[in-house]
Write a protein that binds this DNA or RNA. Sequence first.
DNA 1: GTCTATAGAAAGATAGAC
DNA 2: GTCTATCTTTCTATAGAC
Lengths: 188, 188
Amino acid sequence: MICKSNKPRNADATKEAILEAARIAFSEKGIDGVGVREIAEAAGCNAALVNRYFGGKEQLFAAALVGAFDMSQLLELPKDQFAEAMAAYMVSKRTEHKTFDPMFLALRSIFNPSAMELVRQEIQTHVTDVYASWLDGENRQLRAAMIGSLFAGFYLSRFVMCSESMGFEHDETLAPLLAKTLQIYVEG
Amino acid sequence: MICKSNKPRNADATKEAILEAARIAFSEKGIDGVGVREIAEAAGCNAALVNRYFGGKEQLFAAALVGAFDMSQLLELPKDQFAEAMAAYMVSKRTEHKTFDPMFLALRSIFNPSAMELVRQEIQTHVTDVYASWLDGENRQLRAAMIGSLFAGFYLSRFVMCSESMGFEHDETLAPLLAKTLQIYVEG
DNA sequence: GTCTATAGAAAGATAGAC
DNA sequence: GTCTATCTTTCTATAGAC
């Protein structure tokens, strides 16, 4: 039996283990679909420590969200290659169980009002604003938001709803369709 | 005080009241965000009747989903007017509290595995298949799914996440952007 | 630093009274 | 046909032992 008696351990290590377990659990089930007991168990510690170190479930979610989105990779490309590259990235993306997935982290908790506000701010600052300042021309914020919106809809259809019509066997026709769409938002 | 003693009422009327209350409650909070007690209260009856008449919460959700999607309006248009008309519809769409909204009904419950399966089938049959058979050319299923995906992403950004960048003040620039995107899927 | 134990609230479902 | 009462489970959060 593990974790039965008081462990002589490092608080930072425990805190990090809880955070990592939370990122995975929230990605998989959303903030309302997982309990602190479950997260604590995955982290190999007691549920009381979750509240001890993070103050509560909502604050744990906020901590899990910090730095989740990193857009730097794709935005290093020249603008005339972006649409095709992002389309290729989208169709090649796969999801695995029991892993941290920023898009799932955001999507699966977006209907919880408190979590939604946290997600909204994080995405605005670390996704939309970043895309907007990378774009040229008019209506950058709007076009940046449309890129994010397209990605979210795609994720929903393909990985959440598991629509047959968007299955992996259609990747070769899907990619150019996505690229054309993205090109509209890049051009403005 | 209302509904305190046994009411001499019609079972069909009660059942219908529960169903209507469920459509609104599920649209607003999703299947996991609302309890049967709350739905029963809105319907003006007792919580026990929900299970009595529908068998349980999940079956109530299934009943609420039946016939929720009706795409016939937009598909009466000629194909060369569709993209613009649908874009206009999308930007003009508003949501009110305490109303039945099919898109919210689907979206807000899609992360519940049982509800997701029901939603998936309903959308496949009554949305994607309908669009697909209306479209011409190759890859109809995929293009139809992309139209739905775009709509879902738009709904998420604008009405769920309430992104500033997609606020109503941008409708005039948003509409042509959506229309161009939709035109890609109509043309194929 | 970590755990046990429990308070307190809310949920889904059901048996049975009226 | 409708309601009351209750069983059972599950959840967040916390007090306090070790």
